[in-house]
Simulated scan of single mutants.
Amino acid sequence: MRPYLKFLSALADHNSKEWMDDNKKWYLDSREEFIEDVAVMLKGVEAFEPAMAAFKPKDCIFRINRDVRFSANKNPYKNNFSAYFSAKGKKVEWPGYYVHVQPGASFIGGGLWMPSSDVLKKIRREIDYSGEELKKILASKEVSEVYSGIEGEKLKTSPRDYDADHEFIEFLKLKSFILSKPISDRDIDSGNFINVALDGFQRMKPFQEFLSRAIEDVEDGSGIL
């Protein structure tokens, strides 16, 4: 098993500050190994997202510490390593590509998770104008071979200003806009997940461009993955 998978598996069984303190070197070595994989992915993403050349691997990686203030789960650490590749950085509300490594639960994804109300309005307006384009993107062989459709929480009724019989009402009900694909431990262990991720990311580029066009005048926010 890839060394950082072993670490994450052990962390899931011993998720405490005391255990982490006792295994700090193992954590740092595992994190460094993940950073090395992220560096390879970052270079690959640059090929179709040139703006990513401005970022270093550590700019793309999320902290392992959890914010437990408003969570029933008081475990201090995430049981995963993750990274987000976005042209405007991981702290800005902008579409990007996400990789999540966790034993038995790894996946790649992309888009926008729970965008702010202003951004959501802009995306819905774009769907209202160009929903047929989005439908074609999702139905294209390039996308549909890998992704089964947009994932994310939906409203139970139609959003304000849109009729319930709108042609694209199911898109308009969405509160998140995510494409994702599970990754096996075998692919993680072999390192093949890097190629799988890059292929998956490139395939979703038209979807990312649709979202980016919708919100291109938005500079900051908090709806990142």
Rank of each mutant, 00 (worst) to 15 (best):
I35K: 15
E145P: 13
E167F: 10
E36Q: 12
H166M: 13
Q202I: 05
F34L: 04
L174T: 08
D217N: 07
E151V: 13
K205N: 04
L120A: 04
S190A: 11
S148E: 14
F171C: 05
R125S: 15
P3L: 08
E145I: 15
L211F: 01
S116G: 15
D187A: 13
E36D: 15
S116I: 15
S184D: 10
G200R: 03
L155N: 09
G104V: 09
D59Y: 03
I194T: 12
T157G: 10
W94D: 04
F210S: 01
S116N: 15
K88R: 10
S190C: 08
S82N: 08
I188Y: 01
K58R: 11
I127F: 07
R31Y: 11
E132L: 12
T157M: 12
D187R: 14
S184K: 08
L5F: 09
A139P: 04
A197K: 05
M1Y: 12
L112R: 02
F62I: 03
D165G: 06
F171P: 13
V143M: 07
H14F: 11
E32L: 13
M1T: 14
M204G: 05
I183M: 03
S176F: 00
N79K: 04
E126K: 09
D165I: 06
Q202D: 08
N73L: 02
E219A: 15
Y129W: 09
D189K: 13
L155R: 13
S190V: 09
N65E: 11
Y129M: 12
D189T: 15
D187M: 12
D165K: 07
E36I: 12
I169L: 09
I123M: 03
K43Q: 12
K25F: 14
A139G: 07
I188S: 01
Y98L: 01
G44S: 02
M114S: 15
V101L: 10
D13T: 10
G89N: 09
I183P: 04
E132K: 11
E49N: 09
S212P: 11
L172R: 10
M204H: 04
D161H: 14
K156E: 12
R124H: 14
G104H: 10
E33P: 08
K154S: 13
P95N: 00
P206C: 05
Y27W: 05
